[in-house]
């Protein structure tokens, strides 16, 4: 599988540790779905980023790819600590602690989520049948995390929850990228994504974006629904 794997760890173990961490990411994505307070969503997001950090450290170790430790550090420091703190601050400033608004109900969203996970596992295990087991299962679970993140983005109206959805989507991508052994530019890509996330968070903070704009917010309505487009 990997040429650099140490003899101390049998192949099956390293596979299962990677799988456990990737599976935990999927579970945490589900946890994010049923949170009804924004601050809880942010905490779950921090947990997910931390798990991603450990998953990446594990990949860096078994692939003997030291540059991946940078990606892991970004996940553990920036995405698990700095961004959640900033988001908590935004929630406080904008006073949106208790806002719960999902487009569909939570149970329906969970059902849709289960469907998406089943779909991605079936599709990826089938299509990647010839890839190595580690990469195949990693990519299948990563796709689940990506789709759950997208589901989160479309079912939540709040801008902060949308950011959480996007970051969860991005966690899935980093999982896929690090799982695809030896993929070049992974570190650069994870840095680029961190910049993008910082951009989004700063944007929300500066412009005090509370909601996705197609919702009923009277100030928004007054400002430009009167204009014909």
């Amino acid at each position: 599988m990997t040429n650099a794997m140490t003899s101390l760890i049998p192949a099956a173990t390293s596979l299962s540790i990677a799988n456990v961490l990737a599976g935990a990411l999927v579970l945490v994505s589900f946890m994010m779905m049923y949170q009804d307070r924004i601050s809880a969503v942010i905490n779950v997001l921090a947990l997910q980023a931390a798990i991603l950090g450990f998953a990446v450290i594990w990949q860096a170790y078994i692939q003997a790819a030291p540059e991946l430790y940078i990606t892991a550090a970004l996940a553990l420091g920036f995405k698990a600590v700095v961004i959640p703190l900033a988001l908590h601050r935004i929630v406080e400033k904008l006073g949106i602690h208790r806002e719960v608004e999902t487009v569909a109900g939570i149970s329906l969203t969970m059902l849709a989520g289960i469907g998406l996970v089943a779909l991605s596992i079936v599709v990826m295990l089938h299509t990647a049948a010839h890839a190595e087991a580690l990469a195949r299962e990693d990519v299948a679970l990563a796709l689940s995390v990506i789709l759950l993140g997208m589901l989160m983005m479309v079912t939540r109206r709040n801008a902060v929850s949308q950011i959480a959805g996007f970051m969860s989507l991005e966690n899935g991508l980093i999982l896929a990228a690090t799982g695809a052994q030896g993929m070049p530019l992974v570190v650069e890509i994870s840095v680029a994504f961190s910049v993008l996330i910082a951009f989004i968070v700063i944007g929300v903070f500066l412009f005090r974006i509370r909601e996705r704009f197609d919702t009923v917010d009277s100030t928004v309505l007054d400002a430009f629904r009167g204009r014909l487009r």
């Binding site: 990506i146 991508l173 695809a180 993008l196």
Partner: peptide, 12 residues
């Protein structure tokens, strides 16, 4: 951002 994320998954 979502578009760019999906494009990256395709690239992977």
């Amino acid at each position: 951002s979502v578009g760019i994320a999906l494009a990256l998954f395709g690239t992977i």
